[in-house]
Computed example of a mutant assay.
Amino acid sequence: MYSDLSGSSWVMITQHLLETVHDYTHLPCWATIVTTVSLRLTITLPFAAYQPIIYARLGNLKPEMDAILKELKKETDRAVLVYKWDAKKAKLAFHVCAKKQWNLLVQRDNCHQFKASVLLRCQIPLWVCMSVALRNMLMMLPIQTIDAQILHLSLSTGGFDFGSPI
């Protein structure tokens, strides 16, 4: 399973990106790890900042939805008496109308639940891809070629040269 993940296209793209950054900066291994963390933070920070806004909008809909549900309950009770609905039909009609009203409120305030979970949906695959790509670079995976050995040697011994201490 790991070999499939290690050679997947997303991991290889991420690995190529990290190798390119390393080739241009000649950072040591510890700095390459810091680069991956910085890159993850740069990509996910906007989503992390937007997520509380969506949760606040959803929270603000609750009082309005509670009032709508009370009104729907009254209308459903009236429909049971007028149209002689059974309990199952009344419950189904109530749930359909409540779902429709909720969707209208969410659409009006532009706070879909998917937007609230986009940070999680972005962060986990990004973390996995970057971690596996970094591991590939450090362990000369998925294929041990001369380029992989050079990269491994560069990561383990390379870095900034500040000259000799005074």
Rank of each mutant, 00 (worst) to 15 (best):
Y2T: 12
D4L: 10
S8T: 08
S9H: 13
W10G: 13
V11W: 01
M12E: 15
T14C: 06
T14F: 01
Q15D: 02
Q15P: 04
L17R: 10
L18A: 11
T20K: 12
T20W: 03
V21G: 07
V21H: 05
H22N: 13
H22Q: 13
D23V: 07
Y24V: 11
T25G: 00
T25R: 02
H26M: 15
P28E: 06
C29Q: 12
W30T: 15
A31S: 11
A31E: 09
T32V: 07
T32R: 05
T32H: 02
V34H: 09
T35M: 10
T35R: 05
T36Q: 04
T36Y: 04
T36V: 13
V37A: 15
V37M: 14
L39C: 11
R40H: 14
L41V: 13
L41Q: 13
T44S: 05
L45Y: 03
F47W: 09
Y50F: 13
Y50R: 01
Q51F: 11
P52D: 03
Y55W: 12
A56I: 08
A56K: 15
G59P: 05
G59T: 08
N60H: 10
N60V: 05
L61H: 06
M65V: 02
D66A: 08
A67G: 04
A67C: 12
L69I: 14
K70I: 09
L72W: 01
K73L: 07
K73R: 11
K73N: 10
K74Y: 09
D77C: 05
A79Y: 11
L81D: 15
V82N: 12
V82G: 06
Y83D: 14
Y83P: 03
K84W: 00
W85V: 03
W85Y: 05
D86F: 02
D86H: 13
D86S: 07
K88Y: 04
A90C: 01
A90V: 04
A90S: 01
A90L: 01
A93L: 08
A93V: 02
A93I: 05
V96G: 03
A98D: 11
A98R: 04
K99Y: 00
K100I: 10
K100S: 14
K100W: 09
K100G: 04
K100F: 08
W102V: 12
W102K: 09
L104H: 11
L104Y: 01
L105N: 02
V106S: 07
Q107L: 14
Q107G: 11
D109V: 12
D109H: 12
N110P: 07
N110M: 09
C111H: 00
Q113V: 07
F114E: 15
F114C: 08
K115Q: 15
S117D: 06
S117Y: 01
V118N: 01
V118I: 15
V118G: 09
L119Y: 05
L119R: 00
L120Q: 04
L120E: 09
L120M: 06
R121N: 12
C122E: 06
Q123T: 11
Q123D: 12
I124Y: 12
I124D: 03
W127P: 00
S131W: 06
A133H: 00
